[in-house]
């Protein structure tokens, strides 16, 4: 039952190897843009993997996950603004702030279920968004630039794009490893039981609230760390990174890639950011032969194509990209 050479495993391995070797390709071609794009993909994949822990494995439909990206990012940027540049201080602070916020939001929102849970997590994220907009000292609506990237006492130079990429990739792979261990542990079995049938879990003696809260805090913390990375990547933070559509993007990555699968969110982040990047060009190219003047304008409507595409995947490829790979790979049963 555990044959290793399935299509899904091959594609996943190829993805990891490709990510590891990417800087080599960049060195050979001199294509800096690809490295910047992939750094962003890797960071957002990490955020999506963290969301997947609660959304995919525990069935908690959190609609405010981008708030943690913002909290981690703002913590980093504000410390930098106040003259603290050491990553040894910034990053643990980003983690601590996200963990505390997750603890507070989780403690209140996890007492509700379904639509109420979605609305409360959304409300908290919007609250964080408006708070960031209101911080005049830190740029308000206009956001805040980082004076310099986080420093690590000369051990790592994050201004080097290749070094920074590898730091992000290492943290993504570390996050995946952590989620893998977590979801297969006793704790993870409880989360999956909660997703499947929470009232039965209570009936057989699990105090489900504390397990859900723990998962929520772990997910928020990991996403906060991804936020510290994003701030370093763009050298800039702004309230818009916490806007509710950003939380929506993270959900789309998880659903598109495959909920409750280890590498699904990575596929999802890759696919969504690729579409975001290249759909406008593709549409532009497709329209040009018919209407050369309007082609550039048509590219702006790429979301009109993205929407139905997502709808199609949700309707016909349940299990997302990961599920599709499994299906194409052949007769594997749904459990393993």
């Amino acid at each position: 039952m555990r044959s290793a050479l399935t299509l899904r495993n091959i594609v996943t391995a190829a993805l990891v190897i490709g990510l590891v070797l990417l800087p080599l390709y960049v060195a050979l071609t001199g294509d800096r843009f690809v490295l910047i794009l992939f750094t962003r993909i890797v960071i957002l994949a990490m955020a999506a993997v963290s969301l997947n822990l609660i959304l995919g494995y525990a069935g908690m439909m959190s609609f405010g996950h981008a708030a943690f990206l913002g909290l981690g990012g703002y913590t980093t940027a504000i410390l930098s603004f106040e003259g603290v540049h050491s990553g040894f201080l910034q990053w643990p602070a980003a983690i601590a702030v996200s963990a505390l916020f997750a603890l507070a939001v989780g403690a209140l929102s996890l007492r509700t279920r379904g639509v109420y849970f979605i609305m409360i997590t959304l409300a908290f994220a919007q609250m964080a968004y408006y708070m960031a907009s209101g911080m005049a000292r830190y740029g308000g609506d206009d956001g805040l630039s980082l004076e310099s990237r986080s420093t690590f006492a000369g051990l790592l130079n994050l201004s080097n794009k290749t070094t920074f990429y590898y730091v992000c990739l290492a943290l993504l792979l570390g996050t995946i490893l952590l989620v893998w261990r977590l979801t297969n542990s006793r704790f993870g079995m409880v989360l999956q039981g909660v997703r499947s049938n929470e009232s039965r879990m209570s009936a057989i003696g699990y105090p489900t609230f504390r397990y859900k809260l723990t998962a929520f805090v772990i997910a928020g913390t990991l996403c906060g760390l991804a936020g510290a990375l994003i701030a370093n990547h763009t050298d800039f933070v702004s309230p818009s990174m916490m806007f509710w559509t950003r939380s929506g993007d993270l959900i789309v990555m998880v659903v598109l890639g495959g909920m409750g699968t280890l590498f699904g969110p990575v596929f999802g982040a890759l696919a969504l950011l690729f579409l975001e990047q290249f759909l406008p060009t593709l549409i532009n190219m497709a329209v040009r032969p018919f209407n050369p003047a309007g082609a550039a304008k048509a590219g702006e409507y790429w979301q009109l194509v993205l929407g139905p595409l997502l709808l199609f995947i949700v309707l016909f490829a349940r299990g997302g990209i990961d599920g599709l790979l499994k299906k194409l790979g052949g007769k594997h049963s749904s459990h393993e």
């Binding site: 261990r181 977590l182 297969n184 542990s185 006793r186 704790f187 993870g188 079995m189 409880v190 057989i204 003696g205 699990y206 397990y211 723990t214």
Partner: peptide, 16 residues
Amino acid sequence: VQAHAGHSFHFWKNAR
């Protein structure tokens, strides 16, 4: 079985 085996804050070992 796990419900009767104490708390489930075990994060690393493969429960399966």
